[in-house]
Computed example of a mutant assay.
Amino acid sequence: MTKHEQLMAEYDNLYIEERPMKNDGLYADGCIWINKNMPSVKRYSILAEEIGHYETSSGDILDQNNISNRKQELLARKWAYEKIVPIEYIHFAISDGHTEIWDMADYLDIDEEFLRDALKYYRILDV
């Protein structure tokens, strides 16, 4: 079972569907839709973020001009970072000699952009 499948199984109370979409993902009222036309590592990170919305967000936050909505978006992303790439995983990767971002992302089986954002969140990467 892949990490993506494990995360889906952990949240089997949610309706999760992968389908062609314009957006990467969307959460509403216990339902998550993920764009199936992405690499699996990206679908995994998007799934984590959408579950983060389930865990942390309330109401319609699609209007990102609203500061409260932007805060909820950030909170869901932080939840996703801590869920699928906790700082301990980063320490393990570094201890095993995976210090380049592309290599670390491959080692952790996550999207490189998601890893880069997580490293910024943990204040490990300053760029």
Rank of each mutant, 00 (worst) to 15 (best):
D12E: 08
D12K: 14
N13H: 11
L14Y: 01
L14Q: 05
Y15V: 05
Y15K: 04
I16D: 01
I16L: 04
E17R: 10
E18P: 03
P20E: 07
P20C: 06
M21I: 07
K22N: 12
K22Q: 09
K22S: 11
K22R: 10
D24P: 02
L26D: 00
L26P: 00
L26A: 02
L26T: 00
A28W: 03
D29F: 01
G30F: 00
G30S: 01
C31E: 02
W33M: 12
W33Q: 11
I34F: 00
N35A: 02
N35V: 04
N35I: 01
K36E: 12
K36H: 08
N37T: 04
N37Y: 01
M38E: 07
M38Y: 01
P39R: 12
V41C: 14
V41D: 13
V41K: 14
V41M: 06
K42C: 05
R43W: 02
Y44N: 04
Y44W: 04
I46M: 02
L47C: 06
L47T: 00
A48W: 03
A48F: 03
E49N: 03
E50S: 02
I51G: 01
I51T: 03
I51K: 04
H53P: 06
H53N: 05
H53M: 05
Y54L: 02
T56W: 01
T56C: 11
S58W: 06
G59V: 05
D60M: 04
D60I: 07
L62F: 05
L62Q: 13
D63I: 08
Q64G: 11
N65Q: 14
N65F: 14
N66Q: 11
N66L: 12
I67S: 15
S68A: 09
N69T: 06
N69F: 08
N69M: 10
N69I: 06
N69P: 10
R70M: 15
K71V: 09
K71L: 11
K71C: 07
K71F: 08
Q72H: 06
E73H: 13
E73T: 14
L74K: 15
L74W: 12
L74I: 15
L75C: 10
L75V: 09
A76N: 09
R77P: 05
R77K: 15
W79H: 09
W79S: 06
A80N: 10
A80P: 10
Y81G: 07
Y81M: 01
K83W: 02
K83S: 10
K83L: 02
I84P: 10
I84A: 06
P86V: 08
I87F: 08
I87H: 11
E88C: 06
I90T: 09
I90Q: 09
I90F: 07
H91G: 13
F92N: 15
F92H: 14
S95P: 04
S95I: 05
S95Q: 07
D96A: 12
T99Q: 06
T99I: 11
E100L: 13
W102S: 15
W102Y: 12
D103I: 02
D103V: 02
D103R: 12
D103G: 08
M104R: 07
M104P: 12
M104D: 11
A105Q: 10
A105E: 06
A105W: 08
Y107W: 11
D109K: 15
D109W: 05
D109R: 12
